[in-house]
Nucleic acid binder design. Structure first.
Lengths: 217, 217
DNA sequence: TTCCTGCTTTCTACATGTAACACTCTCCCT
DNA sequence: AGGGAGAGTGTTACATGTAGAAAGCAGGAA
């Protein structure tokens, strides 16, 4: 059996807070009061304080000096910054993943895409979930552990901006097709093709977010 | 006067520990015992514990589950990972910096390069210091705050690998010339040229590190 | 010698105590 | 009515207490 070192309270609290933030239960701008959270979670303040600091390190929360920590509020500019970074990092990851992915990884990736193809019709929530899984698999199999870690951080931080995303069905379907193109390149072990496909995919999504908000400010 | 919010003990401790690590006073692999450090620094364990966790978040230390935290030990593979990321991020930063740098920034950059040109002869330590400043200025003026933050983290983490670096005078001189090329592109506001120059510069440095250690393992 | 066992020491992880500070609300003075 | 003092509340930041676990060491058996 694997090491179950996650019996640590701080890890549990961090995961719970992260889930609550990403699910929207803790809205952007909410103050994260350590004593209050400790009471609600039934633990002492120490692990809560640590967990909150870790979330700050992940970019999910921001601390203003002496006034405590609050859930990060992402503007359009932040999302564009994040996309720019994701384009750079994930296209690099895709290139390496094409050379280093195992067949098991490819099967998993195909599974995610098939599920996404089935869900793509109107269920934006499931679609986004599978989108995350797709990008996560590519990033985590690139062989560069630091690249994987930074990419995961960026992807998570971006989830805070869910309300700014474009959820039109045709747009989701287009994303799905682009995912298929990326997967094809990965399966053929064509690094440059995977890199380009990933860059174009994220670039197009970024552009659509930008258009969406420049026309309806 | 500006807000002197940095009277916080945790910030002071973090800076001291970081300096000690980067200066080599705390060698890679050293255990960071919270009670011991608290005694030495004359503060309680709480801020020390927080500071240590922050350093883990920065990649300067690693925690093995339940066995505490120790200063990160960078192998050749880690350095290559870091260079790959830096190439990706800093070349992107250079492109944007070309468009967004102020004239004041350019003057500062030129100043760093002139100092580097004067120091390049045999003083590898000063040279490296100015190398850091050069890359820092470019990254910090790119206009993308997250990109700047991630680039700064990578540059700092890489300082842990000082013993693996190549310090031959001809190599330093070559780096300096490449810096000049980058600066020229930035001054001419030529984004793509700055991007390419940065990518080639870091790529060459990375390659020289790789060669150095594949021939003398 | 090598291996096992039990003790000792130290640390981590969590809990709790507390001074100083920030915000809010009330009430009084002008 | 409007503005400001001041109490009251809640928080942060740091200090300290402590159970349990891990590492190191000693000593004895094979």
């Amino acid at each position: 059996m694997q090491p179950i070192a996650s019996a640590r309270v701080v890890d549990v609290v961090r995961d719970q807070l992260r889930s609550a933030i990403l699910a929207g239960d803790l809205a952007p701008g909410s103050r994260l009061s350590v004593p209050e959270l400790a009471r609600q979670l039934g633990v002492s303040r120490s692990p809560v304080r640590e967990a909150v600091l870790l979330l700050v390190g992940e970019g999910l929360a921001v601390e203003q000096s002496r006034r405590g920590v609050e859930v990060a509020r992402l503007e359009l500019g932040d999302v564009l910054e994040l996309y720019e970074l994701r384009i750079s990092l994930e296209s690099l990851a895709a290139r390496h993943a094409a050379e280093r992915m195992t067949n098991t990884d490819l099967v998993a990736l195909r599974g995610v895409l098939d599920a996404q193809g089935a869900a793509a019709v109107g269920d934006a929530r499931s679609f986004r979930e599978l989108d995350l899984r797709f990008h996560e698999i590519v990033s985590q199999t690139c062989g560069n552990t630091r690249l994987a870690r930074h990419a995961a951080l960026l992807a998570r931080e971006m989830r805070l901006a869910a309300p700014l995303m474009v959820n039109e069905p045709w747009h989701l379907r287009q994303s799905h097709e682009e995912h298929r193109t990326i997967e094809r390149a990965l399966r053929q072990r064509d690094g440059p093709a995977a890199e380009n496909a990933m860059r174009e995919h994220l670039g197009r999504v970024c552009q659509s977010v930008r258009n969406r908000h420049s026309t309806t400010p």
